[in-house]
């Protein structure tokens, strides 16, 4: 089936079987391999992308369902030159080790802080409980997200500069 959507600012048209997940479409057809598949049954959160402003598990979404949507993947959050404040906070707090869950953490936290820049630690933990990290123990991830709030409270600073 022909499907048309916007990914990271580019309008793309792809021809996929209905059974292809959005995650596989992004990875295999569009070569956006930053979106990771850790479980393919909607538990680990590594495949989280942002569809029309909302964090979504791309392993539980068909590519054909995304027709007409606007999608942001981890690749779409930063430009070539710099880390975003959220990404920089992750690095500063050592909020990633193997890096596999990281794209899902970043997209989820970005969606959360965009909507709720004042999210407290409890809310951050609540939201991130849908993303599994096996390396960090989550403590530094929560610290990083909390630190990044300031940039989202002032949206001009949330992009990479």
């Amino acid at each position: 089936m022909l499907v048309k959507f916007n990914v990271n600012g580019d309008t793309v048209e792809v021809d996929v079987e209905p059974r292809v997940s959005l995650a596989d479409c992004l990875r295999d057809v569009l070569h956006l391999t930053g979106t990771h598949l850790g479980c393919e049954h909607g538990v680990c959160g590594a495949c989280t992308v942002i569809i029309d402003g909302e964090a979504v598990r791309s392993c539980l979404t068909l590519a054909v369902q995304a027709d007409g949507a606007t999608i942001v993947t981890v690749e779409g959050l930063s430009n070539d030159n710099a880390l975003t404040p959220l990404q920089a906070a992750f690095r500063k707090h050592h909020a990633l080790q193997c890096g596999f869950c990281t794209p899902g953490m970043i997209t989820t936290a970005h969606a959360l802080l965009t909507e709720e820049p004042d999210a407290d630690a409890e809310r951050v933990r609540d939201v991130l409980s849908g993303n599994i990290c096996r390396c960090t123990g989550y403590v530094p991830i929560v610290e990083a997200v909390l630190e990044a709030r300031a940039a989202y409270a002032n949206p001009d600073k949330a992009d990479a500069s």
């Binding site: 956006l32 391999t33 981890v74 930063s78 690095r91 890096g99």
Partner: peptide, 14 residues
């Protein structure tokens, strides 16, 4: 971190 945070790592599935 510079590659992992921006989705630029290369894992075997990539």
């Amino acid at each position: 971190d510079l590659r992992f945070l921006r989705g630029r790592g290369t894992f075997v599935a990539d």
